[in-house]
Deep mutational scan, measured.
Amino acid sequence: EAEIKAARERAIVPLEARMKQFKDMLLERGVSAFSTWEKELHKIVFDPRYLLLNPKERKQVFDQYVKTR
C-alpha cells in the first residue's frame, strides 16, 4: 500500500523536489557520509520519504550525499 501511494506521488511531484526531500531525510535521520548504503539503510527504510525515489535514484542520491558531505 505504501508503495502504491509513493508511486502516485512519484508521478505528481517533480524529480528534483523528491530528490531534495530524500536528501533532507538523510540529514534528519543522521545518515553518516562515512558509512555504506547497506549500513545506513535501517535508519531510513521506514521513513515515507524513502519511497519517493525508485531504488536506482535512491542509491544515486545517497552516493551524491556522501561525496558532498
Rank of each mutant, 00 (worst) to 15 (best):
I12V: 14
K43A: 02
K59W: 06
T36K: 10
W37I: 08
Q60L: 12
K67Q: 11
E1I: 11
Q60V: 12
K39W: 03
F22L: 01
P48S: 14
E28M: 04
V45T: 13
L51R: 12
K39D: 10
A2M: 14
I44E: 01
R8W: 04
V61M: 12
I44D: 01
E9F: 04
R8Y: 05
K43G: 03
M25G: 01
A11H: 09
E57L: 10
V13N: 09
K23A: 14
A7N: 08
R8K: 15
N54K: 13
K23Y: 11
H42L: 04
N54Y: 05
V45D: 15
I44Q: 00
L27Y: 15
E9W: 04
K56R: 13
A17I: 07
M25A: 06
S32Y: 03
F62Q: 02
L27W: 09
K5T: 06
K67G: 15
R69T: 12
S32P: 03
Q64T: 12
E28K: 04
E38M: 02
K23D: 10
A33V: 12
A11K: 07
A7I: 09
E38T: 08
L27V: 13
A33K: 12
K23M: 07
P14A: 09
E9P: 07
D47L: 00
Q60E: 10
M25R: 00
E40K: 01
A11D: 10
D47H: 01
Y50C: 03
K43Q: 04
N54F: 02
K56D: 11
A7W: 05
A6T: 05
E38A: 09
E3R: 07
V31P: 01
E28C: 06
I12H: 08
E57V: 05
F22C: 02
S35T: 05
A17C: 12
A2Q: 11
V61D: 01
T36Q: 07
L15W: 06
Y50P: 00
E57G: 04
A11Q: 14
E16A: 10
R8T: 10
V31F: 02
M19R: 15
R49C: 03
M19F: 08
M25V: 01
A11C: 10
G30T: 04
Q60A: 12
P55A: 10
G30R: 10
R18P: 03
P48Q: 06
F34Q: 14
Q21E: 11
R49D: 02
A7G: 14
F22N: 00
A33Y: 06
F46H: 13
G30V: 02
A6P: 08
Q21T: 12
S35K: 03
A11R: 13
E3C: 04
R10V: 15
P14S: 08
A7M: 12
R69G: 15
M25H: 01
L27P: 05
E16S: 14
D47N: 01
R18L: 03
E1C: 01
Y50N: 04
K59F: 13
R8A: 06
A6R: 12
K39H: 06
T36D: 06
Q64Y: 07
R10G: 12
S32T: 09
R8C: 02
M25K: 00
I4L: 01
L52K: 05
K59D: 13
E38K: 15
P48C: 09
A11F: 08
L53K: 00
R29S: 10
E40S: 08
K43N: 03
V45H: 15
G30Q: 09
M25E: 00
E40I: 09
T68Q: 13
E38L: 02
L41C: 05
F34R: 13
A17F: 06
K67W: 10
L51N: 06
M19Q: 11
L41T: 11
D63F: 06
F34H: 12
E28G: 03
E57K: 09
P55K: 14
Y65P: 00
S35C: 03
K20Y: 03
E28Q: 12
R58H: 03
K5E: 15
A2T: 13
F34D: 08
M19N: 04
P48G: 08
V31G: 00
K56T: 13
K43Y: 00
V13R: 07
L51F: 05
K23V: 05
R29H: 12
K20R: 08
P55N: 14
R18W: 02
V13D: 05
A7Y: 05
V61G: 07
D24W: 05
V61H: 03
R69Y: 05
L15S: 08
D63T: 10
R69H: 15
N54D: 06
G30W: 01
K67Y: 09
K59N: 09
H42P: 15
R18M: 02
L52A: 12
L53E: 00
R58G: 08
Q64E: 13
F34N: 14
R29K: 15
A33T: 06
E3G: 09
F22V: 01
K39N: 14
L26C: 05
S32K: 13
R8H: 14
E1A: 04
L51G: 11
M25Q: 00
K67C: 09
L53D: 00
E3T: 07
V66D: 03
V13Q: 12
E16P: 12
H42V: 05
I12M: 14
L53R: 00
L53V: 04
S32I: 04
F62R: 01
E40A: 13
L53I: 08
F62P: 01
K20M: 06
L26H: 00
K39R: 11
K5G: 07
R18V: 02
S32C: 06
I4C: 01
Q60N: 12
I44A: 06
R58K: 05
I12R: 10
F22D: 00
M19C: 07
R10P: 13
H42E: 15
R18G: 03
E16G: 12
G30C: 06
L41H: 11
E9Q: 10
L27F: 08
L53Q: 00
R69E: 15
E16F: 09
I44K: 00
A6V: 11
D47F: 01
K56W: 12
